[in-house]
Structures are given as C-alpha cells and as structure tokens.
Design a protein around this nucleic acid. Structure first.
Length: 706
DNA sequence: TTTAGGG
DNA sequence: CCCTAAA
C-alpha cells in the first residue's frame, strides 16, 4: 500500500478502541449521521491547522488490494499491489514559506514551518495496469489511465502540533524600535510517525507543555496534546476493467479514483491538539450532511454536547479504519475539513492586504493615539471589506509617554500549514489553498493571550500600568499569543455591547481583543465560516449559538475616543479571525437552533471533473452510486447525489458559451467529452426504454401466439 | 438507499 | 447544494 501512514489520535499514546458506529452501507457510502462526538475531530482540525505546515509532496496513488467494490468492474486484472518505490524527484516539498503577505501586514505575516517535522515517506506505488481490455475501449483505457492519473501524486504531510508556535512578534515602543517577543503557545509536541507497513501510521504526541503561555490556562490541553496527521493515499489507480453489462462509452478510460485531498485532507493534514480531553471523543464517521444538520452552522446548539463528550476513541478508531482502508478511516478524516474557498476567498485576500497594509487606520498607531479616527474606524469595520483583515497584522499602540503605551504587534506567526496539491496544480490554486488553511486557522476561534516576562497575564481587568506593561522596560518582555478559544464566552460580543473606547480602568478583558470579523459578505465565504465554526465548536466544546443571519456584525472591541484622551486607551485591535464571528456566541437563542447546516460548497476541481467524466463515460448516467464508488470512493464529501448534480451542471456548462461559464474553467476537451457522453448515454437510455416497452409486447404476443 | 429532478 | 418523490 502506498502511503498509508496514518496518524492515530492519541493522547499520550492512549488509544481508544475503535467502535464502528455507522452502518455498513453508511460507511460504504460515506454518509453518516452526525453526532456531537463527531465534533471532536473538528477540534483536531483546528489545532492541527494551527500547527499546519506547508508541505508539498507528491505521491502516486496507492492502490488498494481491495480493488473495487463496484460490482460492475468485473474481474480485476492487475491487482493493486504496491511497490515501495519512491520517486524522490517528483517530490515537491515546501517546508517553509516565509514570504507572502508578511510584508504587507497581511494576516498571516509568516508562514513558518517549524521544527522538527517528520514527513511521511511517500511511496509511490506504481499502479499496475492490466492488459485486460474492456470492450473496444480497452487500449485507450490503459494509456489514458496512466497518462491521466497514473501520475497522481499525493502529498502527505505530517503534522506537528505547533499550536505553541502561535507566537507573536511584538514591536513595542513609541519610537518605533522593535522588540520581538516570541511566545510559544501552549504546547510543544513531539510526534512520532510510524508507518506501519501499508497500514497505518501512528503519530503520538508526547506533548510538553511549555510553561508560560498556556499551561495555566484551564482551557488548554492537559499537557497531552495530540495531533494527528493525515496522509491519504487515496488516489486509486484503476486496475480493473469494467465489465459493465452496459455497453461502454467509446473511448472509455480507466477510472480514476479521485483523491479527496481537496476537502478534509487538505486541512486534514493536520490536527490539533485538543483543548480538553472531554472534547474529543472522536467518532469515525463524519462529514455527512446529517452531521451538519446537527451541527447547524447557524445555531451551534450542538456545542453543549461536546462538553460531555469523553475522550473515548482516538487512536483505536483510526487504526481500525486504516487497516480496513475503508470508509471508516476516510470518514474520520473527512471530518476534518476545511472549506475550500475560491474566488471569494481570493478577493478576501486582496482585501486583507489592503486593509492591513495601509487602510486599516484603526490600527495605525498614530491614529490610535490621536484618537481622531474612531468614526472612520468604525465605518471601516462595518463595511469595508478590508476591515475584516484587521486581524493579524494588527498593531495596537500604546504610548507610555502620554499615559499611552504604544504597542505594535508586528505579526502573528502562523505555524504550520499542511497543504497538498498535485504537481499540476496551479500557483493560483496553491495560493488559494494556503489562504484557505490560513483562514481556517484564524477562523477557528482564537483568542489572544498576553504574556509579560514569559508569564501569562490572566487578569484582564488590570491596567497596563498595573501589570507593568506600561513600563518601557517591560515592553520587551511583552508577548502575545494566539490560543484556542476555549472560553465559553470570550466577552461581550454583541455588536452593541462592545465598547468603542476603553478607559484605562476598564475591565475589558484582553480576550476581547480577539474579535470577530466584520461582516463583509464579499470577504467571507459562508462555507468557511461554517467550517471554522465547526472547528471552533468542537474545540471549545461549549454551547455556542450564533445566528449567521445576524452574526456578522463588525465590531471593534476597542478603539480610541477623544473623550478618553487622558485615559490609557487601547487602540483598536481588530478582529483576529475572519470567521470567528460566526462562532462567537451570541446571546440570543435561536429557535432554529436545530436547523441543519448547509454543506460547505466545494467546487469540483478539474481533476475531479475529469474523473467524473471518465466514470460516466464508462458507466453512463444513472448509475451514480457506481460512479461514486469508482471514481470518488475516497472523496467522502462527494456523494453520488453530488456527482449527479455535478454532471448535470457539467452538461449545462458544456452547452453554454464559455463567456457564460463561471468558476474554475473546465477544459473544453472535458466539456466536449461530457456532451458526447451525455448524448451517448441518453441514446442508450432511450434504447433501453424502448426495449423495455417492447418486451411486454413481445411477451404478450408470445402468449397470444401460444 | 438510490435515482431523478426541481429548487 | 438541498429536498424529495419514487422506485
């Protein structure tokens, strides 16, 4: 088997017994009912994301001995035995990404892959291609197969629990001199990845809690952070010929099993340490619609359940899943998904840049000090797209001189991002991926911690003066940390509640600094919000209710106001997360709390479309389940209904003019094939119906004759 | 549970 | 993508 290294969720090596919960069929199809426990995984995701690492690797699709379950596939000619060959040359790894938006003050100022990571060795399994032919298309099949997908690469990454690395570089001082205080967040984890021959990889974390920051934080991990990594060798290379009773579509190709790297896997590459054991009772199944229903994005009533969840299974389940190489595993993974943001996200990014780089007046020290920009700030926070970005690169200033402390947070580092892309992926998609991952992190619900001399300042009501932060000599010892937002209710989050000015003695908790994102529809992708919310929820394990309809109220928790000239006002610190808002507990309860969450939109990639087209060419329309099994068995988030819908849209897309098409452009070649296949199978269907109509007649006739 | 279609 | 009637 190819890279089947998997990580087990583990807390100190504790492994929880695997307990199948889904029905066989459910597992097979990858649809399960969502349960509160499923949310556990989300927490992993959040943390993992934080600890994400940008890693690009490529691997060939693992083939599974189990070939396919598709009854129509017929004899499996070449078994999918995997060789352990590695193609080093093909591996593309990006370990570090220090560039990007940092210069511009973008949210993620730095993408740092930290430390000791271990990478999975990717094994490239040469897919065997059998010589079996299927109908007239056999010849083509083989070649096409190898050409198109034989090369499938997969990237596996390992995760490192780098939550702790959410450190902030702080620039302090009125004069602009900088001091950097790095605070390692909470945990330092070690992971051990074991790649059990073709079965699973275990990752165990022996977490060391770094003092300082969060060890004292009740919400944080019990010192046994666990991270899990995912590697999915999902790509399946077709080895079987289809013996489908139906005539096969001309020019059929071998099917390709699309890797589901897109969804969960992406982000899934990482897992997060849990905030609390409680929150993690992992469940093998995930990501289905039903789950979402429970986890309704709009109303996170689900959250409460999490509280009671006990850490039951982690490793065990994963292992089991892995071993079986079936849906269990996959479903588990699927839980950890981050929404894929597309165009919108992009725009959001650009906005971010703008907002942070220069337009975010609220944050600028001068303004803050002068305190003459509150309105503007306010305005921006409410409407300008860029505002949402306010976050990371945020600077807050204090000036010690005029009783003000000038403080500038140069940037928050985003630890590791795990990303996997096919070699053929475009730079644009890479950017998108990174953006998604970043947003997932930021949207996961983070809060800010303040450290002084390495010690966490927990008393939010203390003034800067009291805590000593106001002292110049202390400035260099000041640090900020991003922590998983475990607290139930960070602070007043209703837009109305948030004070726009912060008197020096204001008890305003620092946590409030972590605000939600302004409602910038254009910037925030709904799906993202949901996912983030999910994660946060899981992470927090608290009951949170939010109403998406009203949630996005931009808020600046702190800002300066002239009336407060004499006070040591904290200059506005903008939102830290884009999606956090949706997660922020809203005081009101929603009647619709039981509503279901709409699934995250996951546009089909060209690769997926290709796989779909191939499958349909071979199987025809109307056999979506088979198509799913054949080409998307590993993509849990793609249900047969999704595939059917996609085909429907594809056909439509193919019929309209290119100018009318939206989204990621699908190669005309594929669209042509779509039309051809559609026509072919439609005709086929018509013939079938004719036959069926004729049969009774014939029988009747026969009877009559007799 | 799957299909097939409308929304 | 969602929702559902039908099969």
């Amino acid at each position: 088997m190819v890279l089947q290294s998997r990580l087990d969720y583990g807390f100190n090596g504790y492994q929880v017994p695997y307990t199948p919960r889904a029905t066989r069929s459910a597992r097979r199809r990858g649809s399960f009912k969502k349960r509160a426990e499923d949310n556990k995984m989300c927490a992993f995701d959040l943390l993992a994301t934080v600890a994400g690492k940008l890693l690009l690797e490529k691997e060939s699709p693992p083939s599974s001995g189990n070939a396919s379950t598709d009854e129509d596939q017929g004899p499996v000619v070449g078994d999918t035995e995997t060789k352990e060959s590695q193609d080093e040359n093909k591996q593309l790894k990006v370990e570090k990404c220090d560039q990007g938006s940092c210069d511009r003050g973008f949210i993620v100022s730095e993408l740092v892959s930290q430390a000791h990571d271990q990478k999975f060795n990717l094994k490239e399994s040469p897919h065997h291609q059998d010589d079996a032919h299927f109908g007239f298309a056999s010849a083509i099949t083989t070649s096409d197969c190898s050409e198109g997908f034989g090369d499938q690469k997969q990237v596996f990454g390992k995760t490192e629990n780098e939550m702790g690395t959410l450190a902030s570089d702080v620039e302090v001082g009125p004069s602009g001199y900088r001091e950097y205080g790095d605070c390692k967040l909470e945990v330092e984890t070690k992971k051990i990845i074991k790649d059990e021959s073709n079965k699973s990889g275990d990752i165990q974390f022996g977490g060391n809690m770094a003092d300082g920051c969060s060890s004292d934080d009740p919400v944080v991990w019990d010192g046994k952070p666990s991270a899990l990594v995912s590697s999915d060798s999902s790509a399946k290379v077709p080895l079987c010929r289809d013996n489908s009773p139906h005539s096969s579509f001309p020019a059929t190709r071998d099917y390709v099993n699309v890797v589901s790297r897109d969804d969960d896997e992406n982000s899934s590459g990482c897992t997060h340490p849990s905030t609390t054991k409680k929150f993690f009772r992992s469940t093998p199944r995930i990501g289905d619609r039903r789950i979402r229903k429970i986890l309704a994005s709009k109303y996170w009533k689900v959250a409460p359940k999490l509280k009671d969840v006990t850490l039951s299974n982690t490793d065990g389940e994963l292992k089991a899943v892995y071993r079986n190489r079936n849906s269990y595993y996959r479903s588990l993974r699927s839980e950890r998904n981050f929404p894929i943001k597309k165009r919108r996200l992009f725009s959001a990014v650009s906005n971010y840049d703008e907002g942070i780089s220069g337009k975010n007046i609220c944050l600028s020290p001068e303004r803050g000090i002068d305190g003459d920009v509150p309105n503007l700030c306010h305005k921006m926070m409410h409407g300008a797209p860029g505002t949402s970005s306010s976050v990371a690169g945020s600077h807050s200033s204090f000036q010690s001189r005029n009783s003000h402390v000038k403080l500038r947070i140069k940037s928050f580092r985003v630890p590791e991002l795990f990303i996997e892309l096919p070699e053929t992926a475009t730079v644009g998609s890479l950017k998108r991926r990174v953006m998604e991952a970043v947003n997932a992190i930021l949207g996961g619900g983070l809060r800010v911690g303040v450290l002084l001399q390495g010690k966490k300042v927990r008393d939010d009501s203390k003034t800067l003066l009291q805590t000593g932060i106001a002292h110049d000599n202390e400035l260099d010892a000041l640090g900020f940390s991003l922590e998983p937002n475990t607290s139930q209710n960070p602070t007043p989050l209703c837009p109305g509640d948030s004070p726009r000015m912060l008197p020096c003695n204001s008890p305003q908790p620092l946590t409030s600094l972590v605000t939600r994102y302004p409602a910038a529809p254009a910037v925030v992708h709904q799906g993202t919000c949901d996912a983030a919310t999910e994660l946060l929820l899981a992470n927090i394990g608290n009951s949170i209710e939010s109403d998406h309809d009203s949630a996005p109220s931009p808020t600046t928790d702190m800002s300066i106001d002239k009336s407060t000239n004499d006070s040591k006002a904290l200059v506005a610190v903008p939102a830290i997360s884009l999606e956090a808002l949706s997660v922020v507990p809203v005081h009101r309860k929603s009647k619709r709390s039981e509503m279901v969450q709409r699934r995250i939109r996951r546009p089909f990639s060209v690769t997926e479309v290709e796989a779909l087209v191939q499958a349909v060419e071979k199987l025809g329309t109307g056999r979506w389940r088979d198509v799913k099994l054949r080409a998307f068995d590993n993509a849990k988030h793609r249900t047969y209904v999704d595939l059917k819908d996609k085909w429907k849209t594809l056909v439509h897309t193919a019929k309209i003019s290119p100018q009318q098409r939206r989204g990621e452009p699908v190669p005309q070649e594929l669209l042509d094939r779509v039309l051809t296949a559609h026509a072919f199978w439609s005709q086929q269907q018509a013939k079938q119906q004719l036959k069926q109509q004729q049969q009774p007649q014939q029988q009747l006739e026969t009877c009559l004759l007799l």
